[in-house]
């Protein structure tokens, strides 16, 4: 297991976009940590559907929805 995966992450609301490079085998929770956020405060979407945070990260796009918004 060597190398890395590249992901493009969009954070909503706000629309901030981050290009991240993570070690292969990283978990979705690692994306959240790299953004400086708490797992309890977000829902991570892959192709419009939520994903469990212990799922392994795949190359491509993710959307991070902030739970403390838009009550």
């Amino acid at each position: 297991m060597t190398g890395s995966v590249k992901v493009r992450v969009r954070v909503l609301p706000g629309g901030r976009v981050e290009e991240l490079e993570l070690a292969r085998g990283s978990r979705v929770a690692d994306i959240v940590a790299r953004l400086g956020l708490a797992v309890s405060g977000v829902v991570v979407l892959r192709e419009g559907s939520p994903v469990p945070e212990d799922e392994v990260v795949e190359e491509g796009e993710y959307t991070v929805l902030l739970a403390a918004s838009g009550g």
Partner: peptide, 18 residues
């Protein structure tokens, strides 16, 4: 809030997230 957000997303219900 994480749970309500997950719920409305999986239902596909329209909501305004701003």
């Amino acid at each position: 809030g994480k749970e309500t957000l997950t719920y409305v997303v999986v239902l596909g219900a329209p909501f305004h997230h701003e």
